[in-house]
Amino acid sequence: MGVKIFYAFIALIGGIAYGLLLGGISRKITARMQNRRGPTVFQNFIDVWKLFRKKTAISHGVMFYLAPIFRLLGGAGTFLLVPIVVGNFYLSNFSFGGDLIVIMYFMVMGCLGMALGAAESGHPHAPIGVTRGLAQMAGQELPFIISVVVLMIVDKTTSVEGIVMAQQGGILHWHIFTYPFAAIAAFISLLGMMTSYPFEIVMAPQEIAIGPPTEFSSTFLSYMFSGRSVFAVAKYVLFMDLFLGGATNLLWAFLKTFLIFLWPLFITDVFPRFKLEQSVSFFWTWPTLIGLIDLLRIYIVR
């Protein structure tokens, strides 16, 4: 177990680094799409270091201190529950039977901690962002849960490892090809989870400055930054496990997560922003209906 903890810790460090690097790459790609040079791909590392070493003179109470920790723990916890390479002792982290449900709880935990902390910071933009974020979460969770339920019923298991094992045996066994409608619903829901641009209503830089973390500075912000990065990587890895057949070695894991990372990025760069009610009603109609097609299909077939 001690060895396991050690390797999971190393995987966590690697996950944070990979997340920060992906963030830098996304800034670079966005810059090239806007016909400018953009920062280096390592810009996020520099930012995090600078923020980590800045002084802070603000205090708003206990929850204010705990919120960034919650955020980091939410991200790290999700990451540690998802197996990166299934069957590999060193890279399957702490995944165990029945973990998909735990993962779905963990994905919400970071946001809830953040919501409490942001509400205590007392800035008027923070509760606006928080209420929007929670409403949006109610929107995006529905199609995601429908598609996850489809996979659970089909593979007769709730463990991510089981779902990965059920997809082995060639590219056409991947769930993105066997259950395309569920996959479409989940990938649209991923856009909401990543707050990528048509659904960017939580931070909403044009409207409420930066939303929930308005009052957070310095070290707090660097924790949030790294928590956000590793949370993003956790979601990419989860989607890879659920729909792209997992990975047999690290190289495949990098390649597939990078492909999944490009999807919200390209959507972000070309779209304007929804309002909250538009966003939630979109999630509750189109991806939900698309996901229901596969649910109905397996209901009729079986």
Binding site: R27, A31, Q34, N35, R36, R37, G38, P39, T40, Q43, I46, D47, K50, L51, I58, P205, A209, I210, P213, T214, E215, F216, S217, L221
Partner: peptide, 21 residues
């Protein structure tokens, strides 16, 4: 913005003084 692109030097605008340098 795009024309002179200060982001290539690592600079960016933030909306809140708490996070600004």
């Amino acid at each position: 913005t795009s024309r002179f692109d200060a982001e290539r030097f690592g600079m960016r605008m933030v909306g809140t003084p708490r996070q600004a340098d």
